[in-house]
C-alpha cells in the first residue's frame, strides 16, 4: 500500500468524526440562525420558515440579549485580569529561589483546576451562604457586616468571578512558571551585579521575556471566560434579577427551555463573532504598544 493511501485511511476516522459532529453542525448552526426554528417546527418541519437576518435583527433590539452580553463582558473584563494576576503572582512565588517545598505548593495550587466545576460551584454556594457560610464568618471576625453574596444582584457576579479565579488560576500558573524557568539565570545575575532591585528585575527581565507567553494565555483565558455557563447554572440559575445570565445561559434557555432554536443559533454566532473580534484585538495589541 502506498503511504499516501495509508495516510487517508489513517485520517479517515478522525476526519469523519470532526466533519459530521463538528464542521457540519457549525455550518448547520449558521443555516439555523436564518430560520424561525421553534417548537412548532420541531413538531412539524413544514412550519419552518426562512427569516434571513430576522433573528439577528430581533436580538439587537432585545434588552435581555444586551444585558446578557453586558454580564458576560463584566465577567471577562474583571475575571481575566484577576485570574492572570493570580496566576502570575503564584508563578513568580514558585519560581523564586527562596521557595521551599515547591512540588507540594505547585500541586496544591493546581488542584482546583482538575476539580469538577459543577461540584465545586455547589461547594461555593455554601461557603458563600449569607447566614452559615465561611466567607461571611471570616469577614464578621474583622467586623464586616454579612454580604448577601449570591442573593444580591450587585454581588452575585463578583462571587462567580471569585469562584472562577479560584478554579482556574492554576492552569496559567503552570504555563507562566515554565516560561519563567526558561529565562536564563545569567540575566538576573548580571542585573543583580548592576544593583537592580527585585522589582526592576521583574519589570525589565521577566515581564518582557514572558510577553509572548502572557499574550497567549490571555487570549486562551478570554475565549474560555466568554463561555461562562456552568457556574451561573449551578450557583444562581442566572439570577438574581438576571444579573448572572451570560450569553450562553441565555442561549441554553432560549434553545432548550423555550425551543427557539433559530434565535439560540443566532445568539451562539453573535458570541462567536464577539470572541473572534476580542482575539483579533488582543493580537494587534502588542504591535500598537511597540513591545
Amino acid at each position: 500500500m502506498k503511504p499516501a493511501r495509508a495516510a487517508w485511511l489513517f485520517l479517515a476516522p478522525a476526519l469523519l468524526v470532526l466533519g459530521v459532529f463538528f464542521l457540519l453542525p457549525v455550518l448547520g448552526a449558521l443555516g439555523l440562525s436564518f430560520t424561525d426554528y421553534d417548537l412548532y417546527a420541531l413538531a412539524d418541519l413544514h412550519r419552518l420558515r426562512f427569516v434571513a437576518l430576522g433573528n439577528y435583527w430581533a436580538l439587537l433590539h432585545r434588552p435581555a440579549f444586551w444585558a446578557a452580553l453586558g454580564h458576560t463582558f463584566y465577567f471577562v473584563a474583571v475575571g481575566v485580569p484577576l485570574s492572570l494576576a493570580a496566576s502570575l503572582g503564584a508563578a513568580l512565588l514558585l519560581a523564586s529561589p527562596l521557595a521551599r517545598c515547591r512540588a507540594f505548593f505547585r500541586t496544591a495550587l493546581f488542584a482546583p483546576v482538575v476539580t469538577t466545576a459543577v461540584a465545586m460551584a455547589v461547594v461555593w454556594r455554601y461557603l458563600f451562604n449569607t447566614q452559615y457560610g465561611w466567607a461571611n464568618h471570616v469577614l464578621g471576625a474583622i467586623g464586616i457586616h454579612p454580604v448577601d453574596w449570591l442573593g444580591d444582584p450587585h454581588w452575585a457576579m463578583p462571587t462567580i468571578i471569585l469562584f472562577a479565579v479560584w478554579k482556574n488560576f492554576g492552569y496559567n500558573m503552570i504555563i507562566l512558571l515554565a516560561g519563567l524557568q526558561a529565562i536564563p539565570r545569567e540575566l538576573y545575575e548580571a542585573a543583580r551585579l548592576d544593583g537592580a532591585s527585585a522589582w526592576r528585575q521583574f519589570r525589565h527581565i521577566s515581564l518582557p521575556l514572558l510577553g509572548p507567553t502572557l499574550l497567549m494565555v490571555t487570549i486562551l483565558t478570554v475565549s474560555g471566560y466568554f463561555q461562562l455557563f456552568a457556574e451561573p447554572y449551578v450557583m444562581t440559575e442566572g439570577g438574581p434579577l438576571e444579573s448572572t445570565t451570560s450569553v450562553l445561559y441565555l442561549m441554553y434557555e432560549d434553545g432548550f427551555k423555550w425551543w427557539n432554536l433559530g434565535t439560540a443559533a443566532a445568539e451562539a454566532f453573535l458570541l462567536f463573532l464577539v470572541m473572534f473580534a476580542a482575539t483579533l484585538a488582543l493580537l494587534r495589541w502588542p504591535r500598537r504598544s511597540g513591545a
Partner: peptide, 17 residues
Amino acid sequence: GLLVVPAQVAMLPLFLL
C-alpha cells in the same frame, strides 16, 4: 482553524441531528 469556533455553536444543530 476549527479551534477558533467555540464548541457551543455546534450544539444546537447537533441536538437536532
